[in-house]
């Protein structure tokens, strides 16, 4: 069975961008302000996916310049993803409700 990668151009890409933009808007629109900082940090983590793109670019590098920039890109992208995850998790870990005792 031959599988060809989905090619996302023209209107297909536009649909993706549009739906993704509304999704982001809807998710944040209803957030209480106590979660603004962790959520900014969480969305910061999510765009760390850029590391995957940088990996592809580095693996397909064919000159020293491309290798150097690609190395830089993967390094930064990995930092974005890992750092974003750690600080978000640390912040959210601390949110907890009162103990059972309730006056």
């Amino acid at each position: 069975m031959e599988y060809a990668t989905t090619v996302l151009t023209g209107f297909v890409a536009l649909y993706i961008f549009m739906l993704a933009a509304f999704t982001g808007y809807e998710i944040i629109g209803r957030v209480p302000s106590i979660l603004h900082t962790p959520l900014m940090s969480g969305s910061n983590f999510v765009h760390g996916i850029v590391v995957v793109g940088a990996l592809w670019a580095l693996l397909n590098a064919s000159s020293t310049l491309e290798q150097a920039i690609g190395f830089f890109g993967v390094l930064l992208g990995a930092g974005n993803a890992a750092g974003g995850y750690v600080v978000t998790e640390r912040m959210l870990e601390m949110f907890k409700p009162s103990d059972k005792k309730k006056g």
């Binding site: 890409a13 961008f17 982001g24 944040i28 959520l39 765009h47 996916i49 793109g53 592809w56 670019a57």
Partner: peptide
Amino acid sequence: YVLNNPALMIAGMVVGSAGTLL
């Protein structure tokens, strides 16, 4: 889009709009 990578497109655009609203 440039890399034809839907994960980047979706994650990036979700954060782009969520971040703008935030």
